[in-house]
Each structure stands twice: as structure tokens, then as C-alpha cells.
Nucleic acid binder design. Structure first.
Lengths: 155, 155
DNA sequence: TAAACTGGTTCTAACTTAGAACTAGAATCA
DNA sequence: TGATTCTAGTTCTAAGTTAGAACCAGTTTA
């Protein structure tokens, strides 16, 4: 066994998420999907990814329920890759990564793409971790409790 | 050049973030740091990661300003790995991954760890992407604008 | 009908990872 | 003090993964 170590059974949702979308390309493919890419060729040229790797990734992501394929919307016989509800659920992950990059990885004045509110054209607000009653929480205000059963509605 | 393709110069903050913390182990190491791990051995036993890979990852993460080393707080001559402000800035990323995992990767009733508000002991609220004026935004309410200069204070 | 496009598959070389073995300095034990 | 164990690594090898090029079949366009 020199296969990459799976974290699926760790009982930690973070580990399990990374097991599914934690490889080098998946989140970039998903980001491109949020930005409008649907076709194999769009992903390929947008990312500069090898066709072999892209084919493998898309197949895995479809298997894992993050993308589904559909007939091409332009009427041709080709297929499109569309995010499922599960895939669209990754939007906050992409936004969190984007905001961290904006805040820590760009020099002042350096050019970068910008995520804006479509209606107003203004940049979106900073993500905040909040308690159920709406207080903003920093990491030290929180705590991870070991394995507990996820009761329906216990969020 | 068969080295892994770097996305650093893509101008997209998501790509740049993944270039820094997008490998298999980094986010799990950072998650453990949020959960209290500080020492090499704590990360190693907590993750079941090989020592060689862990040493490389920790060195990279220190180089990239996500961890810093400090004398061990127990008075021994060993060192500790502490998250910098930049590293602590990844908290929303970890929370977003956790919530996605909770929502989509666990069967009802399956055991998992839980992130709670330390003060009240209640699970935290679902992350929401919001406009500057506080409206909750779905992915289709947003849009990525190509390369623009990041003006100081334009967030 | 020919040419070009789309969406792949296959192949190889280079790179990364897992895991075991080894090591040096620090701490603990007898 | 000396021996043992612990900590935090480094080094090595085998196996898995990735990048990129070459190839190919079905579809669309000229």
C-alpha cells in the first residue's frame, strides 16, 4: 500500500471533504464551472490541464456526484458537465479560498480577478464564521467535539 | 518540465491559494493546528502521515508564512509549530470544507466530529456569502470580473 | 467529401508519496 | 553517570501520480 492515504473514515468532515475534492485540480475545475465552463474543451483550455488528467478528474467528479453530464445546450451531439446541487454547495469553499488569497497572496496594486455581487457590481463581503445567534466567531471561540452522531436537524 | 503546474501567475486568487495550500496534506495539518496540535509528533500521530512528507510540508508551510516555529511551551528544548496570522486566516476555509462535508458526505446518524461555539456549546451557523449590504448571495448572484487592480481598501 | 474540431485514450518520463530504516540530540530512568 | 527512550527529523526505495505528446473515432463545418 503506497496508495495515497485516504481520510474518508477519519470521522472528520474536513478530512472527508478533502478526500473528495482535495487533489490538485478538482477545486480549480469546480471554480471554472462556477465561472461558466461546461464543456471538456473549455475546462482544458481554461486551466492548461492535460487531457488525460482532466478526463480522469471529470470522471471522478461525476462518480462522486459533484458534476453530472447533460446534452450540450448548443444543440450539438456533445455533452456538458454541469454542477449538481452537491457541487454548487462548494461555493462557500471557493469564496473562502478566494478571499484568503486576496488578503494574503497579492501585492498591493497587483492585478487580480474580482468576485462581485451581480446586482450591484460591488465586491462581496468578507465571509464570517458565526454562532447560531449571529455573533461573529474567531477560531479561538470555537472547539471541535469528538465523534458525535449527526442527528437530523442538529445543525 | 513534468513538475506540477503552478497556478501562481493566473491572477485568480483561488488558484493562487491552491498553489500554496492545495496539496494533499497542508489543509489537514492546518486543521490539526486549529484543533491544538503544535508539535511535530502531534501532527504525525494525529494524521498518520509519513515523517518525510510531514517534514517537507511543515518546512514549506513555514517558508510560505503559514506557520512559524517557537520554543516549546513545555520548557523543553524542542520547537513548536504555531499558525501565523496568515495561517489563522484560513479558518473560514476549514469551516467551509467542514460544513460541506457535514452536509453532503455523511449518512444520517453517522458519527462525526462537531465544531461548536465554545461559549454556548452549540453548533456554529452555516457560512453565508453576502453582499456588502448584507444580502445573502447564491453563486448565480455573483460574477467574476477579469483582472483588475486591487486598490487599497477596495474590499 | 475533406478538413477541422471535440472529447477523449494510451504511452512514457519525470515527479511525488508511503513507509521503513537510520540518526543525532534531549529527556528520563536506574 | 550511563543506559534507555523520546523527539524530530533525514535518507532510501518502491510504487503511484502527473504532464505532455501522440494517437484516434465520431461530429461538425467548409
Amino acid at each position: 500500500m503506497v496508495k495515497r492515504v485516504s481520510q474518508w473514515n477519519a470521522g472528520c468532515p474536513v478530512a472527508r471533504s478533502l478526500d473528495v475534492i482535495g487533489d490538485w485540480w478538482s477545486l480549480l475545475i469546480i471554480r471554472d464551472a462556477f465561472d461558466g465552463s461546461r464543456r471538456f474543451g473549455e475546462f482544458q483550455s481554461g486551466l492548461g490541464i492535460g487531457k488525460g488528467v482532466l478526463a480522469t478528474r471529470l470522471r471522478d467528479l461525476v462518480e462522486r456526484g459533484i458534476f453530472e453530464t447533460a446534452p450540450a445546450s448548443d444543440g450539438t451531439a456533445y455533452r456538458e458537465y454541469i454542477l449538481t446541487a452537491k457541487g454548487r454547495g462548494l461555493f462557500p469553499v471557493i469564496v473562502a479560498l478566494r478571499q484568503w488569497g486576496e488578503d494574503h497572496l497579492f501585492a498591493p496594486g497587483e492585478k487580480r480577478s474580482l468576485l462581485v455581487d451581480r446586482e450591484k457590481g460591488a465586491p462581496i463581503a468578507q465571509l464570517e464564521v458565526r454562532s447560531r445567534d449571529g455573533r461573529s466567531l474567531a477560531w479561538f471561540d470555537t472547539q471541535v467535539l469528538a465523534e458525535s452522531s449527526c442527528l437530523p436537524g442538529s445543525r
